[in-house]
Nucleic acid binder design. Sequence first.
DNA 1: ACAACCAGTTTCATTATGCAACCACATAGG
DNA 2: CCTATGTGGTTGCATAATGAAACTGGTTGT
Lengths: 151, 151
Amino acid sequence: MVQRTRLQDAECPVARSLDAIGDWWSLLIVRDAFDGLRRFGEFQRNLGMAKNILASRLRQLVEHRILELVPASDGSAYQEYVLTEKGRGLFPLIVGLRQWGEAFFYQPGEAHSVLVDRQSGAPVGPLQLRAADGRVLGPDDCVRVAGPPPA
Amino acid sequence: MVQRTRLQDAECPVARSLDAIGDWWSLLIVRDAFDGLRRFGEFQRNLGMAKNILASRLRQLVEHRILELVPASDGSAYQEYVLTEKGRGLFPLIVGLRQWGEAFFYQPGEAHSVLVDRQSGAPVGPLQLRAADGRVLGPDDCVRVAGPPPA
DNA sequence: ACAACCAGTTTCATTATGCAACCACATAGG
DNA sequence: CCTATGTGGTTGCATAATGAAACTGGTTGT
């Protein structure tokens, strides 16, 4: 079992998120879930990870309501792990990881899988943060400020 | 030292990214760096983590060229850790973690820090992935496809 | 010169990870 | 019905990562 709330600093949403998915395997499992994997064995074969660790991570992800167990879609007596709404909320994060990896870990011309828009078949654009008026914001355009005192 | 390339699956950019920043502390250090922290002691006090672990993480982050060491800005003989361009590229990821945390780990009305646009002072909008034509894309609007065979 | 501070390293105990073997139940074949 | 195989785990044990605390060596303030 993974420790929780290691931070005095848990009023920061980033820390709370990392507490749930901050270990090495969890996001890879979630990535595979976005790719349509559902069964214990599928995750295990695709990730090549130890079964006990996978079992433990899946348990955590279910506890955190990122995945949920549903009856198998093929009619067998087994169960499947599927993303909840909360789990699907991780989509921008997975895309962020992917785009950062693409930008900084590949030689120009080195092959890797790409994310494409289903409708056009064209690669997706970069993740963007925008201000209320539509300006795209970079790191220097933002500040973190203390939460509003409870109105 | 942390193991590298644990995955047969390293042709996936998500896996390469996680190999660099997939442990618990690294992204919190990067978050603090975005907030302007630069010195060993600042990170250590703010995160409350063991000094040996912090030293090891900072070393990794420097090796990965996410942080770099520069002479201290206050003129002292010490050094400071600052984000490189690659490190600054993690901005959308940190924002993604923050927004996911805000959306799913707080009760309505529970206080937390917020990210605001410097110019307007208003909270930033949600991270968005867009298609080439500007449509906002969700998880179901995208597919991962194998990288183009080297043209 | 001396005390406090800064940025670590070292040592050692605790915890997590990973491999391999094992096991219960489900399904498939004969 | 009986057996063989696949699925989805658990258990035990070795190894690796983590963490707390003490220690160190250079720096700074007085």
